[in-house]
Design a protein around this nucleic acid. Structure first.
Length: 518
RNA sequence: GCCCCCGUCGUCCAGCGGCCUAGGAUCCCACCCUUUCAAGGUGGUGACGCCGGUUCGAAUCCGGUCGGGGGUACCA
């Protein structure tokens, strides 16, 4: 009697998890959380030529990182969670075959013995047909005759199995986001549900699993909208007994008695690039893992992605998970394609970074410093106590100016390790110009016996402007370059204080030599 | 070609016949702050694709048109 919400996210494991896909996953996840439902994660690897284990692992990793944990689905160790597994379609082949047998017995399908070439020829000659329409595959005009069937069967030719869809009439759904959507059955082709090698195609496997898993709402991208009518036919057939018999035959867990066929659909608008074209590598990062590498926070991505096509009633934009869950409603999702705007994502990310408690930020920064995410390792894994302390002292200096976590990779080298390599560009632009050597020499002198506090360092260094007769920018820049190796660094006095007297003086001395030569 | 969908600032959203001289966010510009880079503060530019219709009144309803997108696979 339960009407529990059961939704799913079911990517095909080829390549990396795409932000557009994650958006769909997020919407499902939010909907499940909002209604106390179950979020099922299923791997649709029916196409053996495309699916890879590597991709499947990376998708799980991406889902984990972005924080979309699943109630049912495969697990990293090869096992799975949930009572209705397995959740990888490649492990459910027997079920699909059992379903096809029953569908055939019920007369809901027909066999197609055409080869790829013959199919192509058929399409070509039926394309420019009477009404100029596209080639529509319908049993009435497409199926082989009894005689042909007998001949092909005798020859043992391979065949694919197609599902019969109604010859006429209309099919209507009340889509949660698009409202009423209707199709003319005469224009819906009969899909291949089983390939000539005996494997199941997406239309079959997807429908079988949605029914077998008691999915109540199918929420997916708009690119799958056109597939809805034929899947609905399958859902009905399956729910009317076939799925239960097939499940029993292959000894897979039987459905919960309260489950029925999926009752609702929600087709999400596409996520496109700023040029309105389908989002792809051309537009920059599209793989979830790349966003991680670039220092975006998973919570920022969740917040931003949720807003891509939806907004809460009151128009708030900075929302944490609880707020997202409390407000999210598929009925208020827009219908037009949304462009992915990295600038806005970045702005949101900067705000969240600034809102962190310093210790928390330090923790989040570690993967960017210990080599985990591909940047050169500056600290051990895990960091030593001394490295941790340096990081914690560095954080307050950089927190305000960071938009992405990976920016630490630029600031940190000066603070970990003794020496610093001065960037050539900094030598050209700063150390080679007049007051540089003098400023550095003066700094060495005044810092020699200076109290090592930010205030004292600032006082001594500022006093140099009078002595050298130039603005503070002119004296600060050479010192910054000598001490940090770059023209862009955290605030100077604080940086010097963190570095300590010994390293500061050594770097000033080295910088002085460089400046004199330049 | 044929089906279907979509159309408010560059971008994401708000707007569901009068509250709109169209609001917020982001971007962009200017100024302030300033030792670099940022951050922060203040102000500003910027949109209802177009044409008809319905109505006292339209961003909101209808038709057309033009743009954009999706599908048209033994991919998913």
């Amino acid at each position: 009697m339960s009407h529990d919400v059961r939704v799913r996210f079911c990517p095909a494991p080829s390549g990396w998890l795409h932000v557009g896909s994650v958006r769909a996953a997020l919407y499902n996840w939010l909907h499940a959380c909002r209604h106390g439902g179950v979020f099922v994660f299923r791997i649709e690897d029916t196409d053996a030529t495309r699916a890879t284990d590597e991709s499947m692992r990376s998708m799980m990793e991406a889902m984990r990182w972005i924080g979309l944990d699943w109630d049912e689905g495969p697990l990293e160790d090869g096992s799975s969670r949930g009572d209705w597994g397995p959740y990888r379609q490649s492990e459910r082949a027997a079920l699909y075959a059992a379903v096809v047998h029953r569908l055939e017995a019920a007369g809901a399908t027909y066999r197609d013995y055409r080869t790829a070439e013959e199919l192509e020829a058929w399409r070509a000659s039926n394309r420019a047909g009477d009404n100029g329409g596209p080639p529509v595959v319908k049993a009435a005009t497409f199926a082989h005759t009894e005689a042909e069937l007998a001949t092909f069967a005798a020859q043992d030719r391979p065949f694919s199995v197609r599902l019969c869809t109604p010859e006429r009439g209309t099919f209507v759904i009340d889509d949660l986001v698009r409202g009423e959507v209707r199709w003319d059955w005469a224009q819906v082709s009969d899909p291949v549900i089983q390939r000539s090698d005996g494997s199941a195609t997406y239309p079959l496997a997807n429908s079988v699993d949605d029914v077998a898993h008691g999915i109540t709402l199918i929420c997916r991208g708009e690119d799958l909208l056109s597939v809805t009518p034929r899947q609905a036919v399958l859902h009905q057939l399956l729910d009317d007994g076939i799925i239960d018999e097939a499940l029993a035959e292959v000894a897979l867990p039987r459905r919960d008695p309260s489950w029925g066929a999926p009752a609702a659909f929600a087709h999400l608008p596409m996520v496109v690039g700023m040029d309105r074209k389908k989002l792809s590598k051309r537009h920059g990062s599209v793989a979830v893992q790349e966003f991680r590498r670039k220092g975006f926070l998973p919570e920022t991505l969740r917040n931003y992605l949720a807003l891509l096509g939806w907004s809460p009633r009151d128009g708030r934009e900075r929302l944490d998970d609880d707020e997202l869950i409390a407000e999210f409603d598929l009925a208020h999702v827009g219908r037009s394609a949304a462009a992915f705007d990295v600038d806005k994502l970045t702005a949101f990310n900067g705000e969240r970074i600034r809102a962190f408690a310093p210790a928390e930020l330090a923790e989040r920064l570690v993967p960017h410093l210990d080599g985990t995410l591909g940047a050169p390792a500056l600290v051990d894994r895990p960091p030593t106590a001394a490295q941790r302390e340096t990081l914690e002292r560095l954080v307050p200096l950089v927190q305000e100016r960071m938009q992405r976590l990976d920016e630490i990779e630029r600031y940190a080298p000066a603070f970990f390790g003794d020496d610093v390599t001065i960037e050539a560009e900094a030598i050209d632009a700063v150390l080679s110009t007049p007051p540089a050597a003098e400023a550095i020499a003066a700094a060495q002198r005044v810092l020699e016996d200076c109290d090592w506090t930010v205030a004292a360092i600032e006082e001594r260094l500022r006093a140099l402007t009078d002595e050298l007769g130039v603005g503070f920018g002119k004296v600060a820049q050479p010192i910054r370059v000598a001490v940090t190796g770059t023209r862009v660094s955290p605030p100077l006095f604080e940086s010097i204080e963190v570095l300590g007297r010994e390293r500061t003086l050594a770097r000033l001395a080295a910088g002085h030599d460089v400046a004199r030569e330049a």
